[in-house]
Each structure stands twice: as structure tokens, then as C-alpha cells.
């Protein structure tokens, strides 16, 4: 099921700006999503994730910067792009008197559009994109969704499933999912994750905006973290981790020497154990300085050692917590967007 790679990134956004009145929703946002990757799009509420997605769908017109989806301008070529894009909004609203099955089919047919042809890198001029009926039925079963209920009787989670089934059953190249699991229970969350994994295996590109960090950690090849309309971090999880601190907890025979003041060591605490010379050391080390920490620990008689790489939550909170500090704005300006080069 693998496909030829198109000659351009699935999404390329540079310096994107969008204001609503006096509010600057997007303030120079950058985003690059490569074909075939699952890209996590993270940020606190109001950071500009949904606004970015609406610009990418050509629903909003940007005030500045550039945006390209599948190599085309989303404002001018919206219809052309949409033939190859499926979208799941964060808050799915359905028509009261249309059944879920009708809505799924309708969304599928809307994607087909009139005269939609496959792009050249997929063997151009082939059959029209649209809804895969077998996959639709299979997805309905996996998501345990009753397609005969009317729109007004679905719960929030079930409305979300309607949009997800339509998106996953569509024959498209790019899936844009805006907090798609906010109403799903843990079982359905698992179904969702396996569906995204299948999409990746088929060579499709996914932009996943999410709050559920475990989900992003499990699914995404690369992530972009945005804050106040700007990208503050972007790269693979490994690259991001490398830039941050690893938590080290060690039990030692005696107190360590030379850890305090060692460059790259933060938040050192030494806690005596059972009144004796033995102690438990807890510290955070810059990941690229981890080696230098091990020396003093070994010299002090290492009994046990756990080293925990930073979770995505910690990466995320590092940017979140800046908001709580009064000098957050200046710090932000000092840190270049997209610190990690691809």
C-alpha cells in the first residue's frame, strides 16, 4: 500500500499571521509536515491550533506569511486541495434530522467533488477519490457506532466518531485532525490510535492536534509545540528530548562530591537514608551532559540508579509554565522559533 512520495512537503507554513480585531491569534507561526509522517500539533487552549487548521483549510484568510498544503495555496486552491484532505473538527456538530450514516456518506461524497482526479504522483487520471464502502462498514464496527441514529441523539463522543469514520474511510492523502479524541472513552481512544497507525502504514500524512500527550507520544513521528500563535519547539521526540533534562534518581553509599556546581545539573537534592551515610540523590541533568554526572555518582558508591527521559508532558509544561512567569514575553522573544533543525 505504500505510495510514491510527492515532491513537496504535505504542509509548509512560514511566518503565518492572523488577527481577529485586536487579538493576534497567529503571530508568525511555522510548521512543516513531511509526506507520510504523523505530526503532533501541541499547544495550550487558545494557542492558535484551530486557527492554523482553519487557514490550512482555506476557511480563514491569513493576514501574512505563507501557507502551502499539498504544494498549493489553501486560500486560492481550497477545492482542489480538499479533494485530497479529510478533516475532523474538534467540536463536531451534526444536522439534527440526518442519521449518522447519511452524514458519513455525505462527507465522503463531498470529498469526491466533481471531476476529482488523482494527483500525478499517484498515477494521475485514475479513479476518483471518495469513500471506501468496505472500510466504512469495518470502521463503524470498530468504533461501535450505530449509523441509524439521528444527529440530535448522538452524544459528543458519538458525534466525534461520525466525523472520524468519514475521515478514515475517505481515500485521501492528508488527514487533519483537530483534537479528535476529546469525547472518546479509553477503549475508543485505542481504536483511534490503531486507525492512525494504519493510515501511516498506508503512507498517508496526518496532522494531529491534541491535548492527550500520551496519544501524541504513541503516534507521532514529529511534533510542533506552539504557544501564543508562535512555534516554540519543533522536531522528532528524540531530538526534543535531547535538548531537555533527564531525571536521575540514585542511591549512594555516601554523600556525593562535586555534583553541586557541575554544569548541566539542576535541582539537586540529597536525602539521607536511615540516618546513616547512605543517601538518595535526585537531580535533573541536561541530556547531553548525562555522562559527566555518572562520574561523581560512581565515586560515591552507586547502589541503584534510575534515569527517566523527559515525558512529552514535561516538554510541554516547560513552555506552559513560562506563562506563569512575569518575564515570559522577553524569554519568548529570545528563543528562536523551531529551535531544532530537521
Amino acid at each position: 500500500m505504500t505510495k510514491a512520495i510527492p515532491p513537496f512537503p504535505a504542509i509548509r507554513v512560514a511566518g503565518l499571521r492572523k488577527s481577529f480585531g485586536r487579538t493576534h491569534a497567529l503571530d508568525g507561526l511555522d510548521l512543516r509536515v513531511e509526506p507520510g509522517e504523523v505530526h503532533g500539533f501541541l499547544g495550550p487552549n487558545g494557542a492558535g491550533k484551530s486557527t492554523t487548521i482553519r487557514v490550512l483549510l482555506g476557511l480563514l484568510r491569513s493576514d501574512g506569511g505563507t501557507a502551502q498544503v499539498l504544494g498549493k495555496d489553501p486560500w486560492h486552491s481550497a477545492v482542489e486541495i480538499h479533494r485530497h484532505v479529510a478533516y475532523v473538527p474538534g467540536d463536531v456538530t451534526l444536522w439534527r434530522n440526518l442519521s449518522g450514516g447519511e452524514v458519513i456518506d455525505l462527507y465522503g461524497r463531498l470529498h469526491r467533488g466533481s471531476g476529482a482526479k488523482r494527483p500525478p504522483w499517484r498515477g494521475g487520471g485514475g479513479r476518483r477519490a471518495g469513500l471506501d464502502a468496505t472500510r466504512r462498514d469495518e470502521l463503524l464496527e470498530r468504533f461501535e457506532l450505530d449509523p441509524t441514529k439521528k444527529g440530535r441523539t448522538y452524544s459528543k463522543g458519538n458525534r466525534q466518531k461520525v466525523a472520524l469514520v468519514a475521515a478514515f474511510a475517505s481515500d485521501v492523502d492528508l488527514l487533519i485532525l483537530d483534537e479528535p479524541t476529546s469525547g472518546l472513552d479509553p477503549l475508543m481512544e485505542e481504536v483511534f490510535q490503531s486507525c492512525v497507525a494504519e493510515e501511516r502504514d498506508r503512507g498517508r500524512t496526518v496532522l494531529l492536534s491534541s491535548h492527550v500527550l500520551s496519544e501524541v507520544e504513541a503516534l507521532c513521528d514529529r511534533v510542533s509545540i506552539i504557544r501564543k500563535g508562535r512555534t516554540v519547539e519543533s522536531g522528532s521526540l528524540g531530538e526534543l528530548r535531547h535538548l531537555t533534562r533527564t531525571t536521575v534518581v540514585a542511591e549512594l553509599a555516601g554523600p556525593p562530591a562535586g555534583l553541586d556546581g557541575l554544569p548541566g545539573v539542576h535541582g539537586l537534592t540529597v536525602q539521607p537514608l536511615q540516618g546513616g551515610p547512605a543517601c538518595r540523590v535526585r537531580l535533573q541533568a541536561d541530556t547531553d551532559r548525562l555522562g559527566a554526572v555518572l562520574g561523581p555518582l560512581g565515586a560515591a558508591g552507586l547502589r541503584s540508579l534510575t534515569s527517566t527521559p523527559p515525558t512529552l508532558e514535561e516538554l510541554f509544561l516547560r513552555h506552559y509554565q513560562d506563562d506563569l512567569r512575569p518575564d515570559a514575553g522577553q524569554q519568548d522573544g529570545a528563543r528562536p522559533a523551531g529551535t531544532v533543525a530537521r
Partner: peptide, 23 residues
């Protein structure tokens, strides 16, 4: 209780105009 609807969309619900008519 609300009656269930069809599991599949009829042919007429094929695009924006069909949707507008249905609504």
C-alpha cells in the same frame, strides 16, 4: 422515541445542493 434513520445516504444527498434541499 425518535425513529432511527437510514444507515446509508440516499443518492439525492450527494453534494451541497442535495444537502440544502434536504435541510
Amino acid at each position: 422515541p425518535a425513529r432511527p434513520g437510514p444507515a446509508r445516504a440516499p443518492r439525492s444527498l450527494g453534494g451541497p445542493t442535495g444537502l440544502a434541499w434536504r435541510l
